[in-house]
Design a binder for these strands. Structure first.
Lengths: 253, 253
DNA sequence: GAATGTGAAGTATTTCACAGCT
DNA sequence: AGCTGTGAAATACTTCACATTC
């Protein structure tokens, strides 16, 4: 099929594994906490514990960035904070827009974790004309009509979609057309985007479903130890079941 | 010495890879949409496109569940919906509590995606006495003092933490002590939990940081061929959509 | 003919274990 | 002595490609 696309955004120069990139923010958070407590140095063992990973993994991760530690001593906290911040691109200011100011969008607008990491909420956008002008988290909501202008005026390259699923693709298309190249999608839908645009999604109900899977497994394997009243009779036919037979259409709307 | 039982009885029987489990909700969502449009069958190719993965992966994933398709034909949509729901444990009712009813907690309480997948918000809990009794999403907020009783009375095994970071570990400890064995954590902190308790985390600012990393890289590599960046609709499913490579936040070692 | 299901091959990630520096 | 940095081994995941089944 001749590889019509590059799977990863041009991973040639400095190939930091995706799995490592995904953990850098974790390390950064732990380091920031240490920095606030004025801890000067930290060992891979300590930092790993604070970040919730094991130390071999952490050292391997850091080895992709360079040799920033001192053997026999550990890592200089401030130096490492800077190096990771730089690697993640957090030493610059990232204006973001949030589209869809419902409950979730408002929560995101109020979320302190953005500002403290170099992300600045440049604008809030909603399709409801009644919202226009209303301030949320101190920022006046603007109407979708002006989306393109807002993106361009603010030089926004990162967009957050918190609209209902039905509107997400359309919003996405407009964001991309206006110049946005990274999208964080909270709508429970798969977005299709042109090459070169990154999408990450957060689906709250997916996380719960994964938990339910493991929870079910626990209940099935260990004989209920300690729990007094188990609710809900489990329809357990975990062994192989017949080819067909009756197929209960179990799906709440 | 500690438990060495990290690997189970090494069977191939019920060992569904984590990566596969994490995609089942995705398939389920796509299948539900097909079901609503009364589509009777679907091929791996079509379903994969709808879910945003490639078809080989999807077939491999399904092969861990069993042989639910028909060669030459495809998959029966209703049947597959049922099988995946059952595998995920969604054929039973999961009462959940949400602790921390700030902006985010309220958004979660209002989020429709929970109820539609077998999750029932059994209670909302907050530490602020002024919130007590106030209804959010139609459910009266209860005070933290009653946490243990609420958990037990409702047979809750899944808890959602949406408190500030500072309160999260304490809330977590109480949830676990009261019998909760799965936790979805929105607070930007690493929770430590005893063996047997699952934690999944969602950190909004981490997702943005990962995007920033790639965004920075794009800007740095900007080649002269940059004008192809218009949405010429490269209809691929390539996009690295999704925070799959997640850290299964388990703790002590 | 069409499309699943799956060994085998190919990648990616994690873990081990220890050489090498301070 | 203590701790990093890293090849090598182990494990996990993805993709290929095709025999098999309808």
């Amino acid at each position: 099929m001749a590889t019509g696309r590059t799977h990863r955004p041009a991973t040639r120069s400095r190939g930091i594994p995706e799995a490592t990139v995904a953990r850098l923010p974790l390390y950064l958070r732990a380091l920031t906490a240490l920095s606030e407590r004025s801890v000067p140095t930290v060992s891979s063992e300590e930092l790993a514990a604070a970040a919730g990973v094991n130390s071999a993994k952490l050292r391997k991760d850091f080895s992709y960035l360079g040799s920033y530690g001192t053997r026999g001593v550990g890592y200089d906290v401030e130096y490492l904070v800077y190096q990771i911040s730089r690697e993640l691109g957090l030493t610059q200011d990232w204006p973001v827009v949030i589209v869809g100011i419902g409950n979730l969008g408002a929560a995101l607008a109020n979320y302190g974790g953005f500002a403290s990491r170099g992300f600045r909420v440049a604008a809030l956008i909603d399709a409801d004309p009644a919202m226009a002008g209303k301030p949320v988290a101190g920022i006046p909501v603007q109407h979708t009509d002006d989306l393109e202008k807002i993106i361009k005026d603010n030089g926004v390259s990162i967009g957050v979609i918190a609209t209902p699923a039905g509107a997400a693709q359309q919003v996405c298309d407009r964001l991309v057309a206006a110049g946005v190249t990274s999208i964080l999608n909270f709508a429970p839908t798969v977005l299709s985007v042109p090459d070169g645009v990154d999408v990450r999604k957060v689906d709250l109900s997916i996380e719960l479903q994964i938990l339910a899977f493991h929870e079910q497994r626990k209940a099935g394997e260990e004989t209920a130890a300690g729990d007094a009243a188990l609710p809900a009779a489990t329809r357990d036919d975990s062994a192989d079941q017949g080819p067909d037979g009756d197929v209960p259409a179990v799906m709440p709307a």
